[in-house]
Design a protein around this nucleic acid. Structure first.
Lengths: 161, 161
DNA sequence: GTGGACCTTCCCATCATGGGAAGGTCAAGG
DNA sequence: CCTTGACCTTCCCATGATGGGAAGGTCCAC
């Protein structure tokens, strides 16, 4: 087992917690690690490399599903870069959408806060706004832009073969 | 029971789903609704008003805890508007922080995508970046800016009494 | 009196992450 | 050899806000 490390050491060296490493294995993002006789997982240099890859992707906001696709493309030496680019741009789109939502909230709140004098008196335009009778709203809808784009990325990879 | 509506009607009129109304009651954000003999919850105009208040706050990105504080301030006719403003500004701060995080991710990804030609060839700067050996990173830390600011808002409310 | 729309509670899933318990393993030092 | 402490294992539970669905009771209009 020379050249391999335990899960704790792998966590320290990659910035992915031991809990998450086990979880990635459990959910199939990573293949099961080889075990010592006592049942301890052991990780070699290639495994550490994959863990750092995952961590970097995670820091860029990719979800596990997308990370799985990225890993597959990484291991596929014949992948078309267009497939990777499609995933990246889909992720950018999702990020931009979430940013736009948050930006809208922040702007509304900033506007409200600007109109509130913020002293000891009870009059408060912020609460007045929250309590305003609004038109019966059509509820909110969301999600799953990524599913579609993941399919597109897979199509690109398939067509290129 | 005239003037009161069932949970489904309340959901329709306020844009808060029946599931969430029950959940708000269960977690103490709302007081238990009065029941009919058969156990059906019934909601009057004031309840609908509160539900719309919650929905509006939710749409501005407030968490349940903050919404609870806002509701308390709403019902406290002697509240200082400064307390409300503090909560609103804390929420703006949280939103701005999350926006900054997402913005950083989006910018990095956009840069990577720009350097990737995105054709049928396998060379891909995006994957190269993800796979790059990075300095052993100090892991991520987050959260709890709101706890602190919630305390500040409560301090303001207390001092004003 | 029946059908269908509605209500109730209870359980489960999400997504990525952490906390903690109970128990086994390993290495170093006495 | 034995203890100690650091480490590993699995298993369960929690998060926040939301939805899905099952099993069963209720209401109302026809």
């Amino acid at each position: 087992m020379s050249g391999t490390v335990t899960i704790g050491e792998a966590a320290r060296r990659t910035g992915v917690s031991a809990k998450m490493i086990r979880w990635y294995e459990e959910t199939g993002l990573l293949p099961p690690a080889p075990r010592s006789e006592a049942g301890y997982r052991h990780y070699g240099p290639a495994d550490l490399h994959a863990l750092r890859f995952i961590r970097r992707a995670r820091d860029l906001g990719f979800g596990v599903e997308a990370i799985g696709e990225l890993l597959a493309l990484w291991h596929d030496r014949a992948r078309p870069s267009a497939a990777v680019k499609a995933l990246a741009l889909a992720q950018v789109g999702e990020l931009r959408q979430r940013i736009a939502e948050l930006e809208g909230m922040a702007r509304s709140l900033e506007h409200l806060a600007r109109t509130c004098c913020g002293d000891g008196r009870p009059d408060c335009p912020i609460l007045d706004d929250l309590a305003a009778e609004a038109a019966p709203p059509p509820a909110r809808r969301r999600r799953r832009l990524a599913d579609e784009t993941g399919r597109i990325a897979r199509d690109i990879a398939r067509k290129a073969r």
